[in-house]
C-alpha cells in the first residue's frame, strides 16, 4: 500500500486558491464585525441578567413573606408587640423599634465624629497624611463584623455594665447602648470615606475665594464647603444609616436579644436582623414562622432600598450643583 500523501491543510489551500486579497479582507472584517455584534448583544444580555437577578431576590423574598398576611393583618404584623410563634402571634413591633433605636443611637454617636474627621482630613490635613489616614480608615472598614462583635463583647459590654453600676442601673451590659456603640464604630469608616470624597469634590477656587476674602479656614468650611457639599454629606449619612440598619452579627452579639420594647439605654433590645439570624435555622417546625421572618427580611430590604435611592438622588444633585 502506498502511504498517504500529507495534504496541506484545507484552510491554506482555500486561501491560496482564492487569491483575491480584497474578498479575504472583507471576510476578516466581517468576522470582526460579527464578533463585535455578538459582544454587544451579550453585553446587553448580561446586564439584563443582573437586573433580573436583583428582581428575583426582591420578588423571591416578597413571595415567601406574603403568606404571613393570611394569618395576621399588616398593621398587626407591624404594630403588635406580641411575638409568640407557638400561638401564631407574630408582632414585629419590638424588633422594629429595636432596630430603629440601635441604628439611631449609632448615628447620634457617630455623626459628629464622622463629620469632624472627614472635614479635618479633607480640609486641614496635608496630602500625605490624608493618604495614610485613608488607608487606616479602609482597614477599619474592612474589619469583619464578627471581630467588631468580639471586641464589643470583650470591651464595650463590661464598660456598659460598669457605667450602669455607676449610675445605679441594673444591667448585664448586653444592651441597646452597647449595640449602639459597636455599630457606631462600624459605620464611622464607611461614612467618613464617602464624606471625604464628597468634600474633595468641591472645587478649590471656592475655598480660595473665601480665604481671599479674609475668612478663616473654619469659616470657609462652614459657609462655603459645607453648603456646596451638603446633599452629598446627607447622602453619606443616609448610606451609613442603611448600612447600620442591616448590620447583623456584631449587633446580635452585644445587644442582648430580648423581645421587648427597650425603655432605657441599658435595656436589652432585639433588632430585626438578629431575629432572623437567631431563628431562621429552626423555623420549619412551626407553620408560617418562616413567612414571618421573611417579612422581617423584606422590611429590611425595603428600607435599605429606599435609603439607597434617596442617597443616589442626593449624590446626583451634588454632582449638578458642583459642576
Amino acid at each position: 500500500m502506498r502511504p498517504k500523501l500529507k495534504m496541506p491543510s484545507k484552510k491554506w489551500v482555500t486561501r491560496k486558491e482564492s487569491g483575491n486579497n480584497h474578498s479575504e479582507m472583507n471576510q476578516r472584517l466581517n468576522k470582526r464585525k460579527v464578533k463585535d455584534n455578538v459582544a454587544s448583544v451579550s453585553a446587553r444580555g448580561i446586564l439584563i441578567f443582573v437586573n433580573f437577578l436583583a428582581l428575583l431576590i426582591f420578588c423571591g423574598i416578597f413571595w415567601k413573606a406574603l403568606p404571613i398576611l393570611s394569618l395576621v393583618s399588616l398593621p398587626e404584623l407591624l404594630f403588635s408587640s406580641s411575638w409568640h410563634p407557638m400561638k401564631n402571634e407574630f408582632g414585629l413591633f419590638p424588633f422594629i423599634i429595636g432596630t430603629m433605636a440601635v441604628t439611631l443611637l449609632a448615628m447620634i454617636i457617630s455623626l459628629p465624629v464622622c463629620m469632624l474627621t472627614s472635614i479635618y482630613l479633607s480640609e486641614y490635613a496635608k496630602r500625605r497624611f490624608r493618604e495614610v489616614s485613608r488607608f487606616a480608615i479602609d482597614i477599619l472598614a474592612g474589619i469583619p463584623s464578627v471581630v467588631y462583635g468580639l471586641c464589643g463583647v470583650l470591651v464595650i459590654v463590661p464598660l456598659v455594665e460598669f457605667m450602669g453600676e455607676l449610675i445605679g442601673v441594673q444591667t448585664t451590659g448586653y444592651s441597646l447602648l452597647a449595640g449602639g456603640i459597636v455599630l457606631a464604630v462600624m459605620v464611622i469608616p464607611f461614612i467618613v470615606s464617602i464624606s471625604m470624597e464628597v468634600l474633595r469634590m468641591v472645587p478649590e477656587p471656592y475655598r480660595e475665594s473665601a480665604l481671599a476674602l479674609g475668612a478663616t479656614r473654619w469659616e470657609t468650611v462652614k459657609y462655603v464647603v459645607l453648603k456646596k457639599a451638603r446633599s452629598g454629606l446627607i447622602a453619606a449619612t443616609v448610606l451609613g444609616f442603611a448600612r447600620a440598619f442591616g448590620e447583623t452579627m456584631a449587633v446580635l452579639m452585644v445587644v442582648g436579644n430580648v423581645a421587648q420594647i427597650p425603655t432605657s439605654l441599658f435595656d436589652a433590645a432585639y433588632p430585626l436582623p438578629a431575629l432572623i439570624a437567631n431563628n431562621y435555622g429552626e423555623v420549619m417546625s412551626i407553620p408560617l414562622y418562616d413567612a414571618a421572618l421573611m417579612s422581617a427580611a423584606f422590611i429590611l430590604m425595603l428600607v435599605v432600598t429606599l435609603f439607597s435611592l434617596t442617597a443616589h438622588y442626593a449624590l446626583l444633585k451634588v454632582g449638578k450643583t458642583i459642576a
Binding site: 439570624a277 421573611m294 435599605v304 443616589h312
Partner: peptide, 23 residues
C-alpha cells in the same frame, strides 16, 4: 439604571442574602 440596581444590591444586608439563599 444597572449601576443603581447594583448599588442597591451592594447596600442590601448580608442577612437578606443568607435568607434568600436558604429559600
Amino acid at each position: 439604571f444597572t449601576r443603581l440596581v447594583l448599588d442597591i444590591l451592594w447596600g442590601t444586608p448580608s442577612i437578606v442574602y443568607g435568607v434568600f439563599g436558604f429559600v
